[in-house]
């Protein structure tokens, strides 16, 4: 039985396979409308989430399956003190697959070690969020036609942003990737990402503070939110959050085929005026997220033989 706990649980071949299924789903949705008939996904969300939970639920409904679950710890037996291990053992009797979001890092791994059904990590604190990474990769591949030989700019909170760390790890497996890490000095990527991923694999990167200077050379710009909950000090948050705001003036500096991605939600780091620029693909990204989650559910449930 397979689980998805970290983006690196999947080989690049498996990723290609999933993205091929997702691309076919986009073209031929009817073909997939009943693949998960009588199957159930349990969405176990111990903390609030709009996009991720609804994306999983939409994915399963699009496949003909159904959904059970909870959307906060208060409405689950966790409020009574039940362990993650016990919860997943019980959910294994109800559902065929589970997607879990939990504020504690490593919770999804603990669930997978005790589960009778495939577990998908839908976010474990600041640790991993593999289906966001799959969404990012699938968006890039769908719109750029490739995942290699690109200059990728990552902008904003690179210190605490788990999506950034996962994307660096995932893209580092492809040839010809160069990173431009754009952030205030205080929010640079952690040293272990530099040392254990970038330096260890000999991947070229530069750390810069100016978004304007970086923009002309990028194939891809991945914007992130400066998350208030990652700061201990509100003054510090207020000082940092406006550092890197993408506007149409800045977009004028970027190549015509550069893509702008964002894991969402956005606060103010991308001006609303940018939304109408064809290079802004963050809302398309949400749609690609549904396709790739559909592909993932099919793959983990081993239902590929039902694809006509």
């Amino acid at each position: 039985m397979k689980h998805l706990i970290s983006p690196l649980d999947l080989t690049t071949e498996e990723l290609d396979h999933l993205m091929n299924i997702a691309a076919d789903i986009e073209k031929n949705p009817d073909k997939y409308a009943h693949i998960c008939d009588r199957k159930k996904i349990a969405t176990l969300f111990y903390e609030p989430s709009t996009r991720t939970r609804l994306s999983f639920e939409t994915a399963m409904l699009n496949l003909g399956g159904s959904v059970i679950g909870f959307s906060s710890a208060d409405s689950s037996s966790a409020a009574k003190g039940e362990s993650v291990a016990d919860t997943i053992r019980i959910i294994s009797c109800f559902a065929d697959i589970a997607a879990m979001r939990h504020p504690k890092e490593g919770a999804a791994l603990v669930a997978s070690l005790n589960s009778g059904i495939p577990v998908i990590n839908a976010g474990d604190g600041g640790h991993q969020h593999p289906t966001q990474t799959l969404t990012d990769l699938h968006t890039i591949r769908s719109l750029k036609g490739k995942l290699d030989h690109m200059t990728v700019g990552l902008c904003g909170d690179l210190k605490f942003g788990r999506t950034v760390h996962s994307l660096i790890n995932a893209l580092a497996r492809y040839e010809g990737i160069r990173f431009v890490l754009i952030s205030p000095k205080e929010l640079r990527v952690p040293s272990y990402i530099r040392e254990e991923v970038l330096d260890a694999k000999g991947i070229p990167y530069e750390e810069v503070t100016s978004l304007d200077n970086a923009l002309p050379n990028l194939d891809l710009l991945y914007m992130t939110r400066v998350q208030k909950e990652r700061f201990f000090n509100e003054e510090e948050y207020i000082r940092m959050k406006d550092c890197y705001i993408l506007t149409m003036d800045k977009m004028a500096l970027a190549p015509k085929d550069m893509l702008v991605l964002h894991p969402l939600p956005r606060v103010n780091e991308i001006s609303v005026e940018v939304d109408s620029d064809p290079r802004a693909v963050y809302f398309k990204q949400v749609q690609y997220g549904v396709y790739i989650r559909m592909a993932l559910i099919i793959y983990l449930l081993e239902l590929e033989d039902r694809i006509c």
């Binding site: 362990s83 291990a85 504690k104 890092e105 490593g106 919770a107 791994l109 603990v110």
Partner: peptide, 13 residues
């Protein structure tokens, strides 16, 4: 030592 780690709260883990 990570206060956000599941091993800090999950019983008998």
């Amino acid at each position: 030592k990570n206060p956000r780690c599941i091993s800090g709260i999950e019983q008998e883990l």
